[in-house]
Simulated assay, not measured.
Amino acid sequence: MAVPSVSAEPPGVDASAPTVPPQSRAPLDVRARITELRLSAFAGHRRAGFPLGPVTLFAGASGAGKTTALTAFEALARLGSGAPLARVFPDPAACVPQRARPDAEGRRGFRIGCTADGAEGPVRLDVAVQAEPQLRIVGERLTAGGLVLLESALRDPGRRTVQAAWHTAGSAPVTRAPLPDDRLGTALLPLHVAGKTDGQRQVLAAAEQMVVALRSVFPCDPRPDRMRTPVPMASGRLLPGCDNLADVLWRTRAECGRRHGLLVEALAAGCAGPVTDLAAEPLSDGTLRAVLDRGDGFRTELARLGDGELRYLALTLVLLTGPGVLDVDTPGEVPDALRTLTVLADGFDRALDPDQRRELLRTAARMGERGHIRCVGAVSDASWAAGAAGVTVVHLDA
Protein backbone atom coordinates (compact mmCIF):
# COMPACT_ATOMS: atom_id res chain seq x y z
CA MET A 1 0.00 0.00 0.00
CA ALA A 2 1.32 3.41 -0.94
CA VAL A 3 2.02 5.94 1.77
CA PRO A 4 -0.36 8.88 1.32
CA SER A 5 1.24 12.18 0.46
CA VAL A 6 1.27 14.95 3.03
CA SER A 7 -1.67 17.26 2.51
CA ALA A 8 -1.79 20.98 3.23
CA GLU A 9 -3.61 20.26 6.48
CA PRO A 10 -1.69 19.92 9.75
CA PRO A 11 -0.65 16.37 10.60
CA GLY A 12 -2.45 16.07 13.91
CA VAL A 13 -2.47 12.63 15.48
CA ASP A 14 -2.73 9.66 13.16
CA ALA A 15 -5.61 7.71 14.64
CA SER A 16 -4.38 4.56 12.91
CA ALA A 17 -0.88 4.88 14.32
CA PRO A 18 0.01 2.96 17.46
CA THR A 19 0.21 5.14 20.53
CA VAL A 20 3.11 4.78 22.93
CA PRO A 21 2.55 5.65 26.58
CA PRO A 22 4.90 8.31 27.94
CA GLN A 23 7.84 7.07 29.95
CA SER A 24 7.27 7.01 33.69
CA ARG A 25 9.36 9.48 35.61
CA ALA A 26 10.25 10.23 39.20
CA PRO A 27 7.80 12.69 40.80
CA LEU A 28 10.43 15.40 41.18
CA ASP A 29 12.07 14.98 37.78
CA VAL A 30 11.16 18.10 35.81
CA ARG A 31 14.07 18.03 33.35
CA ALA A 32 13.01 18.41 29.72
CA ARG A 33 13.78 15.34 27.61
CA ILE A 34 12.44 13.55 24.54
CA THR A 35 10.59 10.37 25.53
CA GLU A 36 9.04 9.31 22.22
CA LEU A 37 9.93 9.56 18.54
CA ARG A 38 7.18 9.27 15.94
CA LEU A 39 7.80 8.57 12.27
CA SER A 40 4.31 8.67 10.78
CA ALA A 41 5.66 8.67 7.22
CA PHE A 42 9.42 9.05 6.92
CA ALA A 43 11.69 7.18 4.49
CA GLY A 44 11.20 3.46 5.29
CA HIS A 45 9.06 4.08 8.39
CA ARG A 46 5.29 4.41 8.43
CA ARG A 47 2.97 4.76 11.42
CA ALA A 48 5.89 4.08 13.76
CA GLY A 49 6.20 5.22 17.37
CA PHE A 50 9.27 4.48 19.45
CA PRO A 51 9.49 4.90 23.25
CA LEU A 52 12.81 6.36 24.38
CA GLY A 53 14.20 5.50 27.79
CA PRO A 54 17.39 6.60 29.55
CA VAL A 55 19.29 4.30 27.15
CA THR A 56 17.63 3.18 23.91
CA LEU A 57 19.22 0.94 21.28
CA PHE A 58 17.69 0.59 17.81
CA ALA A 59 18.65 -2.87 16.58
CA GLY A 60 18.25 -4.50 13.20
CA ALA A 61 19.93 -5.60 10.02
CA SER A 62 21.24 -3.20 7.41
CA GLY A 63 18.32 -1.39 5.80
CA ALA A 64 16.00 -1.82 8.79
CA GLY A 65 15.88 1.93 9.40
CA LYS A 66 18.13 2.40 12.44
CA THR A 67 20.11 5.29 10.98
CA THR A 68 16.91 6.75 9.54
CA ALA A 69 15.35 6.93 12.99
CA LEU A 70 18.39 8.75 14.38
CA THR A 71 18.39 11.05 11.35
CA ALA A 72 14.78 12.04 12.04
CA PHE A 73 15.61 12.66 15.71
CA GLU A 74 18.56 14.88 14.75
CA ALA A 75 16.38 16.74 12.22
CA LEU A 76 13.80 17.55 14.89
CA ALA A 77 16.61 18.74 17.17
CA ARG A 78 17.95 21.10 14.51
CA LEU A 79 14.47 22.43 13.78
CA GLY A 80 14.01 23.05 17.49
CA SER A 81 17.23 25.08 17.44
CA GLY A 82 15.75 27.35 14.77
CA ALA A 83 17.61 26.00 11.73
CA PRO A 84 15.91 26.61 8.36
CA LEU A 85 14.29 23.65 6.65
CA ALA A 86 16.71 23.55 3.69
CA ARG A 87 19.69 23.22 6.02
CA VAL A 88 18.03 20.45 8.02
CA PHE A 89 16.91 18.46 4.96
CA PRO A 90 19.47 18.99 2.15
CA ASP A 91 17.99 16.00 0.28
CA PRO A 92 14.30 16.08 1.22
CA ALA A 93 13.27 13.58 -1.46
CA ALA A 94 15.23 10.90 0.44
CA CYS A 95 12.90 11.42 3.42
CA VAL A 96 9.73 10.72 1.42
CA PRO A 97 8.45 7.13 1.71
CA GLN A 98 9.42 5.26 -1.45
CA ARG A 99 5.90 4.30 -2.48
CA ALA A 100 4.35 7.68 -1.73
CA ARG A 101 2.57 8.92 -4.84
CA PRO A 102 2.23 12.64 -5.59
CA ASP A 103 -1.21 14.22 -5.33
CA ALA A 104 -2.94 16.10 -8.15
CA GLU A 105 -0.61 19.09 -7.64
CA GLY A 106 2.52 16.92 -7.68
CA ARG A 107 3.10 17.24 -3.93
CA ARG A 108 4.85 14.61 -1.81
CA GLY A 109 6.17 14.84 1.73
CA PHE A 110 6.81 13.23 5.09
CA ARG A 111 5.65 13.48 8.72
CA ILE A 112 7.66 13.24 11.93
CA GLY A 113 7.05 14.09 15.56
CA CYS A 114 8.12 13.56 19.16
CA THR A 115 7.02 13.89 22.77
CA ALA A 116 8.94 15.94 25.33
CA ASP A 117 8.36 15.22 29.00
CA GLY A 118 9.13 17.60 31.87
CA ALA A 119 7.52 20.05 34.26
CA GLU A 120 4.54 20.56 31.90
CA GLY A 121 3.92 16.83 31.54
CA PRO A 122 4.02 15.17 28.10
CA VAL A 123 4.03 17.71 25.26
CA ARG A 124 3.55 16.41 21.71
CA LEU A 125 4.90 17.94 18.52
CA ASP A 126 3.86 16.74 15.04
CA VAL A 127 5.20 18.24 11.83
CA ALA A 128 4.21 17.69 8.20
CA VAL A 129 6.81 18.66 5.60
CA GLN A 130 6.25 19.01 1.87
CA ALA A 131 9.36 17.83 0.01
CA GLU A 132 8.15 18.30 -3.56
CA PRO A 133 7.72 20.47 -5.55
CA GLN A 134 8.88 22.97 -2.91
CA LEU A 135 10.39 22.23 0.48
CA ARG A 136 8.18 23.75 3.16
CA ILE A 137 6.40 23.02 6.43
CA VAL A 138 2.73 22.57 5.60
CA GLY A 139 1.39 21.68 9.04
CA GLU A 140 2.44 21.68 12.68
CA ARG A 141 0.65 20.82 15.89
CA LEU A 142 1.76 21.26 19.50
CA THR A 143 -0.47 19.62 22.12
CA ALA A 144 -0.43 19.02 25.87
CA GLY A 145 -3.03 17.44 28.11
CA GLY A 146 -5.33 16.89 25.14
CA LEU A 147 -5.34 20.62 24.35
CA VAL A 148 -4.11 21.98 21.01
CA LEU A 149 -1.72 24.80 21.90
CA LEU A 150 -0.43 25.58 18.39
CA GLU A 151 -1.76 24.56 15.02
CA SER A 152 -0.59 25.68 11.60
CA ALA A 153 -1.55 24.81 8.05
CA LEU A 154 -0.68 25.90 4.53
CA ARG A 155 -3.67 27.86 3.21
CA ASP A 156 -2.22 29.67 0.21
CA PRO A 157 0.46 27.73 -1.76
CA GLY A 158 1.46 31.00 -3.43
CA ARG A 159 2.73 32.47 -0.17
CA ARG A 160 5.81 31.37 1.78
CA THR A 161 3.85 31.34 5.05
CA VAL A 162 1.55 29.06 6.97
CA GLN A 163 -1.50 30.24 8.87
CA ALA A 164 -0.94 29.59 12.58
CA ALA A 165 -3.31 29.71 15.54
CA TRP A 166 -2.26 29.39 19.17
CA HIS A 167 -4.19 29.02 22.39
CA THR A 168 -4.96 32.33 24.11
CA ALA A 169 -7.89 31.73 26.51
CA GLY A 170 -8.41 35.47 26.80
CA SER A 171 -10.96 37.74 25.16
CA ALA A 172 -10.46 35.52 22.09
CA PRO A 173 -9.92 31.74 22.37
CA VAL A 174 -7.03 31.74 19.85
CA THR A 175 -4.66 34.19 18.18
CA ARG A 176 -4.01 33.85 14.46
CA ALA A 177 -0.98 35.06 12.53
CA PRO A 178 1.18 33.98 9.57
CA LEU A 179 4.48 32.21 10.30
CA PRO A 180 7.31 31.40 7.85
CA ASP A 181 7.00 28.00 6.20
CA ASP A 182 10.71 27.17 6.46
CA ARG A 183 11.09 27.15 10.25
CA LEU A 184 9.49 25.33 13.15
CA GLY A 185 6.65 27.45 14.51
CA THR A 186 7.10 26.08 18.04
CA ALA A 187 10.61 27.56 18.17
CA LEU A 188 9.27 30.96 17.04
CA LEU A 189 6.45 31.24 19.58
CA PRO A 190 8.43 33.29 22.17
CA LEU A 191 8.70 36.02 19.52
CA HIS A 192 4.94 36.13 18.93
CA VAL A 193 3.20 35.20 22.18
CA ALA A 194 2.93 37.97 24.78
CA GLY A 195 2.33 35.70 27.77
CA LYS A 196 -0.38 37.95 29.22
CA THR A 197 -3.11 35.32 29.69
CA ASP A 198 -3.04 31.92 31.38
CA GLY A 199 -3.51 30.33 27.99
CA GLN A 200 -0.57 32.19 26.47
CA ARG A 201 1.62 31.29 29.42
CA GLN A 202 0.65 27.64 28.99
CA VAL A 203 1.64 27.82 25.32
CA LEU A 204 5.00 29.38 26.15
CA ALA A 205 5.76 26.85 28.89
CA ALA A 206 4.97 23.89 26.62
CA ALA A 207 6.93 25.36 23.72
CA GLU A 208 9.92 26.05 25.96
CA GLN A 209 9.90 22.48 27.26
CA MET A 210 9.85 21.10 23.73
CA VAL A 211 12.56 23.47 22.46
CA VAL A 212 14.84 22.91 25.46
CA ALA A 213 14.54 19.13 25.03
CA LEU A 214 15.31 19.36 21.32
CA ARG A 215 18.20 21.78 21.74
CA SER A 216 19.76 19.38 24.26
CA VAL A 217 20.64 16.78 21.62
CA PHE A 218 24.24 15.90 20.69
CA PRO A 219 24.76 13.70 17.59
CA CYS A 220 28.06 11.88 18.07
CA ASP A 221 29.98 9.68 15.63
CA PRO A 222 33.66 9.49 16.66
CA ARG A 223 36.07 9.40 13.71
CA PRO A 224 39.26 7.58 14.75
CA ASP A 225 41.07 8.66 11.56
CA ARG A 226 40.70 12.29 12.67
CA MET A 227 41.47 11.71 16.35
CA ARG A 228 45.08 10.64 15.88
CA THR A 229 46.59 13.96 14.86
CA PRO A 230 47.48 16.87 17.21
CA VAL A 231 44.94 19.69 17.33
CA PRO A 232 45.18 23.43 18.08
CA MET A 233 44.08 24.73 21.45
CA ALA A 234 40.61 26.21 20.99
CA SER A 235 37.26 26.37 22.79
CA GLY A 236 37.52 23.04 24.57
CA ARG A 237 34.06 22.02 23.35
CA LEU A 238 33.88 18.54 21.86
CA LEU A 239 32.84 18.30 18.19
CA PRO A 240 30.43 15.57 17.01
CA GLY A 241 33.29 13.70 15.29
CA CYS A 242 35.49 14.02 18.41
CA ASP A 243 38.32 15.32 16.19
CA ASN A 244 39.41 17.78 18.89
CA LEU A 245 39.49 15.31 21.77
CA ALA A 246 42.96 16.44 22.94
CA ASP A 247 41.76 20.05 23.26
CA VAL A 248 38.80 18.91 25.37
CA LEU A 249 41.00 16.77 27.64
CA TRP A 250 43.30 19.74 28.21
CA ARG A 251 40.28 21.57 29.63
CA THR A 252 38.32 18.85 31.46
CA ARG A 253 41.28 17.25 33.24
CA ALA A 254 41.81 20.49 35.16
CA GLU A 255 38.16 21.47 35.59
CA CYS A 256 36.61 18.29 37.01
CA GLY A 257 38.92 15.85 38.70
CA ARG A 258 36.11 13.53 39.80
CA ARG A 259 34.73 12.98 36.30
CA HIS A 260 38.25 12.69 34.91
CA GLY A 261 38.89 9.96 37.46
CA LEU A 262 35.78 8.10 36.27
CA LEU A 263 37.00 8.43 32.68
CA VAL A 264 40.40 6.95 33.59
CA GLU A 265 38.70 4.06 35.42
CA ALA A 266 36.57 3.35 32.35
CA LEU A 267 39.63 3.43 30.07
CA ALA A 268 41.46 0.98 32.32
CA ALA A 269 38.55 -1.42 31.75
CA GLY A 270 38.29 -0.87 28.00
CA CYS A 271 41.84 -0.33 26.72
CA ALA A 272 44.65 -2.84 26.33
CA GLY A 273 47.43 -2.60 28.91
CA PRO A 274 47.53 -0.59 32.15
CA VAL A 275 46.05 2.92 32.22
CA THR A 276 46.69 5.25 35.17
CA ASP A 277 45.89 8.59 33.56
CA LEU A 278 44.81 10.34 30.38
CA ALA A 279 46.30 13.71 29.54
CA ALA A 280 46.88 16.26 26.79
CA GLU A 281 50.43 17.42 26.08
CA PRO A 282 51.33 20.76 24.45
CA LEU A 283 53.73 20.49 21.52
CA SER A 284 56.29 23.00 20.30
CA ASP A 285 54.11 24.10 17.38
CA GLY A 286 51.27 25.15 19.70
CA THR A 287 49.12 22.05 19.16
CA LEU A 288 48.01 19.42 21.66
CA ARG A 289 48.21 15.65 21.55
CA ALA A 290 46.45 13.19 23.86
CA VAL A 291 48.36 10.41 25.61
CA LEU A 292 47.66 7.49 27.92
CA ASP A 293 49.85 7.29 31.03
CA ARG A 294 50.80 3.66 31.59
CA GLY A 295 52.00 4.22 35.15
CA ASP A 296 55.63 3.22 34.63
CA GLY A 297 56.91 6.46 33.18
CA PHE A 298 55.79 5.39 29.69
CA ARG A 299 53.10 7.21 27.72
CA THR A 300 51.21 6.00 24.65
CA GLU A 301 50.07 8.52 22.07
CA LEU A 302 46.42 8.13 21.09
CA ALA A 303 47.64 7.87 17.51
CA ARG A 304 48.83 4.35 18.37
CA LEU A 305 45.47 3.13 19.65
CA GLY A 306 43.10 1.02 17.58
CA ASP A 307 39.82 2.27 16.17
CA GLY A 308 37.82 0.45 18.84
CA GLU A 309 39.86 1.96 21.67
CA LEU A 310 39.48 5.46 20.24
CA ARG A 311 35.73 5.15 19.73
CA TYR A 312 35.36 3.70 23.22
CA LEU A 313 37.38 6.57 24.69
CA ALA A 314 35.43 9.24 22.81
CA LEU A 315 31.96 7.88 23.60
CA THR A 316 32.87 7.37 27.27
CA LEU A 317 34.09 10.98 27.45
CA VAL A 318 30.80 12.18 25.94
CA LEU A 319 28.71 10.21 28.43
CA LEU A 320 30.72 11.47 31.41
CA THR A 321 30.61 15.16 30.48
CA GLY A 322 27.68 17.46 29.75
CA PRO A 323 26.32 20.43 27.77
CA GLY A 324 29.07 22.76 28.98
CA VAL A 325 31.74 20.57 27.36
CA LEU A 326 30.00 19.32 24.24
CA ASP A 327 29.42 21.45 21.14
CA VAL A 328 25.65 21.52 21.65
CA ASP A 329 23.20 24.41 21.38
CA THR A 330 22.86 25.66 24.96
CA PRO A 331 19.84 27.77 25.96
CA GLY A 332 21.55 30.16 28.36
CA GLU A 333 18.32 31.09 30.12
CA VAL A 334 17.69 27.48 31.23
CA PRO A 335 19.84 26.02 34.05
CA ASP A 336 21.46 22.64 33.47
CA ALA A 337 19.37 21.21 36.33
CA LEU A 338 16.30 21.54 34.08
CA ARG A 339 17.94 19.90 31.06
CA THR A 340 18.79 16.36 30.11
CA LEU A 341 21.35 15.90 27.35
CA THR A 342 20.50 13.24 24.75
CA VAL A 343 23.43 11.67 22.91
CA LEU A 344 22.68 10.19 19.46
CA ALA A 345 25.25 7.52 18.60
CA ASP A 346 24.86 5.82 15.24
CA GLY A 347 26.98 2.66 15.21
CA PHE A 348 27.07 2.65 19.01
CA ASP A 349 29.13 -0.56 19.10
CA ARG A 350 31.08 -0.04 15.86
CA ALA A 351 34.64 -1.43 16.12
CA LEU A 352 34.17 -2.28 19.81
CA ASP A 353 35.07 -5.66 21.26
CA PRO A 354 32.61 -7.41 23.64
CA ASP A 355 34.25 -6.02 26.80
CA GLN A 356 34.28 -2.45 25.45
CA ARG A 357 30.64 -2.45 24.40
CA ARG A 358 29.52 -3.90 27.74
CA GLU A 359 31.53 -1.29 29.66
CA LEU A 360 30.22 1.51 27.44
CA LEU A 361 26.63 0.35 27.92
CA ARG A 362 27.19 0.15 31.67
CA THR A 363 28.46 3.74 31.69
CA ALA A 364 25.49 4.91 29.60
CA ALA A 365 23.03 3.17 31.93
CA ARG A 366 24.68 4.61 35.03
CA MET A 367 24.55 8.16 33.65
CA GLY A 368 21.00 7.62 32.43
CA GLU A 369 19.91 6.53 35.89
CA ARG A 370 21.17 9.82 37.28
CA GLY A 371 18.97 11.65 34.76
CA HIS A 372 21.57 14.02 33.30
CA ILE A 373 22.44 12.05 30.16
CA ARG A 374 20.26 9.93 27.89
CA CYS A 375 21.62 7.87 25.02
CA VAL A 376 19.98 6.72 21.79
CA GLY A 377 22.17 4.39 19.74
CA ALA A 378 21.99 2.11 16.73
CA VAL A 379 23.42 -1.44 16.65
CA SER A 380 23.04 -4.31 14.23
CA ASP A 381 22.64 -6.92 16.96
CA ALA A 382 21.56 -6.11 20.52
CA SER A 383 21.60 -9.67 21.92
CA TRP A 384 24.59 -8.69 24.08
CA ALA A 385 22.47 -5.95 25.69
CA ALA A 386 19.48 -8.17 26.50
CA GLY A 387 18.35 -7.78 30.09
CA ALA A 388 20.64 -4.86 30.86
CA ALA A 389 19.11 -2.62 33.52
CA GLY A 390 17.87 0.74 32.26
CA VAL A 391 18.23 -0.21 28.58
CA THR A 392 15.35 -0.20 26.06
CA VAL A 393 15.95 -2.24 22.89
CA VAL A 394 13.82 -1.41 19.84
CA HIS A 395 14.00 -4.22 17.28
CA LEU A 396 13.45 -3.14 13.67
CA ASP A 397 12.73 -5.49 10.79
CA ALA A 398 14.26 -4.84 7.38
Rank of each mutant, 00 (worst) to 15 (best):
R237E: 01
V148E: 10
F298G: 05
G241N: 15
I137P: 09
C114V: 10
R99V: 15
K196Y: 08
Q130I: 08
R357D: 04
L313F: 05
P92R: 12
C220Q: 08
L310V: 10
A116H: 04
R47Q: 13
A268N: 09
D355G: 00
A41K: 05
R251Q: 14
D307P: 01
D247R: 03
A77L: 03
L179H: 09
R304T: 15
E333A: 09
A266Q: 00
C271S: 10
G80W: 10
R141A: 02
N244S: 06
A100W: 01
V174L: 12
L238F: 03
T161S: 07
G65E: 13
E369H: 14
T276C: 07
L338A: 15
G324P: 00
T197R: 02
T56I: 02
L238G: 03
G53H: 13
L344T: 12
R160V: 03
L125K: 05
L142E: 02
C256F: 13
G324E: 06
L125D: 13
L278N: 02
D156R: 11
L292I: 15
T316W: 00
L147E: 14
P27E: 06
R237A: 08
Q163E: 14
S284I: 15
A128I: 04
T392Y: 05
K196A: 14
T287E: 12
P240K: 04
A382D: 12
L188H: 14
T143N: 01
L302V: 06
T300Y: 05
G286F: 15
R299S: 13
P90C: 12
M1F: 06
R304G: 05
A69Y: 14
D346Y: 02
D329P: 00
R358L: 02
L315S: 12
A64W: 13
L154E: 14
G270I: 01
A314N: 13
A206V: 05
P240N: 08
L360T: 05
R141S: 04
D349I: 00
L262P: 01
L310Y: 08
T229M: 12
P10A: 07
V138W: 09
E281N: 09
L288V: 03
T67L: 02
S284C: 08
Y312R: 04
E9K: 10
R183K: 11
M227A: 07
D29S: 12
L267Y: 00
A246T: 09
L135P: 07
G80H: 04
A119M: 08
S216K: 03
R183I: 07
A280D: 12
S16N: 06
A365C: 01
A75P: 01
A382N: 12
A75I: 01
K66Y: 02
A290Y: 12
E9S: 11
V376F: 07
A61F: 06
P10K: 02
C256I: 06
V96P: 06
D381T: 14
